[in-house]
Simulated scan of single mutants.
Amino acid sequence: METYLMAFIIGGIICVIGQLLMDLTPLTPAHVLVLFVVLGGVLSGLGLYQPIVDIGGAGATVPLSGFGHALVSGTIEEINKTGFWGIFSGAVKATATGITAAVVFGVIMAVIFNPKG
C-alpha cells in the first residue's frame, strides 16, 4: 500500500509542476515536455533523480522526467561496461522497448482511428 501511495504522491507532484508551468508561464506543452526530459536527464547525471525513483517508483519513472533519467542512467551504465562506445549505445539500449512500443501503438491507433481535420 505504501508503494502505491508514494508512486501516487511523487507522480502527482511531477504532474502538478507541469500543470503549473503551463498555467502560470508562457510555456507550451511542448516546452514543458522538453523541459521535463532534460531536467530528468540532468538530475540523473547529478545523481539526484535515482533517490526520487527509489522513493516514488513508477510515479517517478513513468512521467517524461523518467525518460530523461532512463536515457542518462542507461548511457552511464553502458559507459561503465564498454567504455567510450557506451556513449552511443547506452541510451538506445535503455529506452528501446519504450520507444518501440510508442511507435507500434501509435501506428496501430493511426490505422484504427480517423484523425480529425
Rank of each mutant, 00 (worst) to 15 (best):
71 L>M: 14
89 S>G: 02
72 V>Y: 00
39 L>S: 09
85 W>L: 11
86 G>A: 07
60 A>Y: 02
39 L>K: 01
63 P>W: 07
86 G>N: 06
49 Y>L: 11
22 M>E: 15
63 P>V: 09
106 G>H: 04
29 P>N: 08
71 L>R: 01
16 V>Q: 02
82 T>W: 09
35 L>E: 01
24 L>F: 13
90 G>S: 11
63 P>T: 03
24 L>W: 06
25 T>L: 01
62 V>W: 00
8 F>T: 14
30 A>E: 10
50 Q>H: 03
89 S>Q: 11
110 A>G: 05
9 I>P: 05
81 K>R: 12
83 G>E: 09
43 L>Q: 12
108 I>W: 10
103 V>S: 02
48 L>T: 04
71 L>I: 15
69 H>A: 12
27 L>Q: 00
112 I>Q: 07
49 Y>N: 04
1 M>Q: 10
27 L>V: 03
21 L>D: 05
109 M>F: 10
34 V>I: 05
46 L>C: 07
10 I>K: 00
28 T>N: 04
45 G>Y: 10
71 L>Y: 01
111 V>S: 12
82 T>A: 10
44 S>F: 00
47 G>R: 03
88 F>M: 07
14 I>L: 15
106 G>F: 01
58 A>W: 03
12 G>S: 13
61 T>A: 12
116 K>F: 03
82 T>K: 08
11 G>P: 09
3 T>D: 04
78 E>D: 08
91 A>H: 05
26 P>S: 09
17 I>K: 02
57 G>S: 13
101 A>Y: 14
106 G>R: 08
72 V>I: 14
116 K>C: 00
91 A>S: 07
95 T>C: 11
5 L>P: 06
105 F>E: 04
69 H>N: 06
6 M>H: 14
43 L>C: 11
100 T>W: 02
49 Y>D: 06
11 G>Y: 05
23 D>T: 08
102 A>Q: 04
11 G>F: 07
62 V>D: 00
36 F>C: 10
108 I>M: 14
98 G>F: 13
11 G>I: 08
9 I>K: 10
75 T>C: 12
29 P>C: 09
67 F>V: 13
4 Y>H: 12
61 T>D: 02
37 V>E: 02
48 L>I: 03
37 V>S: 09
84 F>D: 11
107 V>T: 05
111 V>R: 09
64 L>I: 13
59 G>A: 02
93 K>N: 12
57 G>C: 08
66 G>F: 09
4 Y>K: 13
34 V>Y: 09
103 V>N: 02
63 P>S: 05
111 V>P: 04
79 I>T: 03
1 M>E: 10
33 L>E: 15
2 E>G: 07
107 V>N: 06
74 G>V: 06
41 G>S: 13
12 G>V: 07
32 V>W: 08
103 V>E: 04
88 F>Q: 11
32 V>A: 04
46 L>D: 04
26 P>V: 08
50 Q>S: 02
78 E>I: 00
21 L>H: 13
102 A>L: 08
104 V>A: 15
78 E>P: 00
109 M>H: 08
97 T>G: 13
97 T>Q: 10
117 G>L: 12
87 I>H: 08
8 F>M: 15
23 D>R: 11
62 V>H: 00
96 A>T: 06
64 L>F: 15
92 V>G: 07
1 M>V: 15
23 D>E: 05
62 V>K: 00
115 P>F: 15
